[in-house]
Design a protein around this nucleic acid. Structure first.
Lengths: 261, 261
DNA sequence: CCATTCGGTTCATTATGTGAACCAATGGTT
DNA sequence: AACCATTGGTTCACATAATGAACCGAATGG
């Protein structure tokens, strides 16, 4: 692995739960030598990607990322488009709609919109990393990834989030086949115990998968009617968004195959 | 310069005017070898910091920065940053530093920090609403507001807080012109009789004004030296905070116009 | 149809990053 | 107060990993 990769991958250890990380801690998490970690952090700090709280204290993400994000948003108004698409999807289904983006080998949540139709709803966490095997979004994306990436993902340890999480590679591959056939991935309680979610992949101009759009509903509220509604709306909104982003569904994608599978 | 620094500094070449940059172009701008540039961009791309538009096309900022920005936002609330910036500004000047935020058509104080250097100091009131025409913060913000908002503010009744408060719309517009030229607004006794304050606007990622940072000193203590110090420090701290918040000064902002730092 | 671009690749050279060991400082335990 | 286990940070001999001139094939375009 190159030096730059190591430096950038340090940034991945920051999360909502761990917004600040000390030097030794960071070295431990990343598996790098402490001296190496220090120099990498120093380089990141020099460019404003991380900063230190006080004097000789922990590191956290720096202001440079805000600047870059603003520029990215100015160049690619994806967030705006996603927001309106999610709003519409959430309105149509009465459930939580969210959108995640594939970044390298990771899938991270970009944004979400709640519906206010019901007193209960599935809550989302900002900028969360989604496991491929445990979420509908993950399955939707993985199904259309290159085979070598699927292999890579499935040979890594697969965390058993709940008792219903799929962790057997063979079972997951079977699920991916299903996704390929219907274009929609489904996960019942794989991530959170009482969440039933559907997801559909999004594609770029080269018909590569770039992320997924999903609807998450409480298991208790799921009925055949709601399920049909969600699948219909999801199909509609996801293909619309793919098109709006200038992307195309791949040839083998069951775009208008049917509406009730 | 280390490899990581070089890689990260590539990202600095993206801007609003140049959101997409080709490989050769990037090599030229950065002064690095084309092969080096390629490998650095590849590393950045692998982590999602840049992405390529089509097939073999230009590079632009990638989605990873969005994720990091979201985490930064969650980890570092605006209030904290304001507090440290104000503390530093107050320490540097020996006077009261405060920060106000534009909320709709009102300017409200977010926080303030006193200096303990002198026995007398300008006192602030929590969450106070600041009149645009009577305070340096108000003038600083108003100067960079859209014209229709300026009109709205100036046609409303303008309270004469002290005998020195500007209430003539024409005089205020003249003051705004001054602010535009120097980037700093000044008010002597306009709000409280013996308060001399300087303020500088803060901007968001869309270069819209979001508030102002200010230093307030007793009129009796103001000397040419102190004034120069305040202007210098204010300029420094305000632009820093704007950057730290991921914002940009608008093009017409006199960022480094004068003042030897 | 030649001349430039472009993005991307190769490979010998060496500069650059690496990590075990080592500080000095801090803080909790006894 | 002596102790031990931490912390963030530094050093330096060593070898890995970055470098850049030259090269490629594919688009451009005059």
């Amino acid at each position: 692995m190159g030096t730059v990769d190591k430096a950038l991958s340090l940034l991945d250890h920051f999360s909502r739960a761990q917004p600040e990380i000390g030097l030794s801690d960071m070295a431990r998490r990343s598996g790098l030598n402490k001296a190496t970690t220090f120099r990498l952090l120093a380089a990141l700090q020099a460019q404003g990607f991380v900063e230190q709280i006080g004097s000789g204290r922990e590191y956290r993400l720096g202001p440079a990322v805000l600047r870059l994000a603003a520029l990215r948003e100015a160049a690619v108004p994806l967030r705006d488009m996603a927001a309106t698409a999610l709003q519409s999807l959430s309105d149509a289904t009465g459930e939580t709609a969210h959108l995640s983006l594939l970044q390298g080998d990771r899938l991270s949540m970009l944004s979400y919109v709640y519906s206010h139709r019901h007193g209960t709803r599935v809550m989302m966490e900002d900028a969360q990393i989604l496991a491929f095997h445990a979420t509908s979004s993950g399955l939707a994306v993985l199904a259309f990834c290159p085979p070598d990436m699927i292999d890579r993902v499935l040979q890594a340890p697969l965390e058993k989030r709940t008792e219903d999480t799929l962790t057997d590679p063979a079972a997951i591959r079977a699920a991916l086949d299903n996704v390929h056939r219907s274009g929609i991935a489904e996960s019942v309680g794989g991530f959170e115990k009482d969440v039933h979610s559907h997801a559909m992949p999004l594609f770029d101009a080269q018909t590569r998968v770039i992320g997924a759009m999903a609807v998450a509903a409480p298991v208790a509220r799921m009925t055949p009617d709601l399920k049909a509604l969600i699948r219909r709306e999801l199909r509609h909104h996801a293909t619309d968004l793919t098109r709006a982003l200038g992307g195309f569904c791949p040839d083998n994608f069951p775009v208008n195959r049917d509406l009730k599978d």
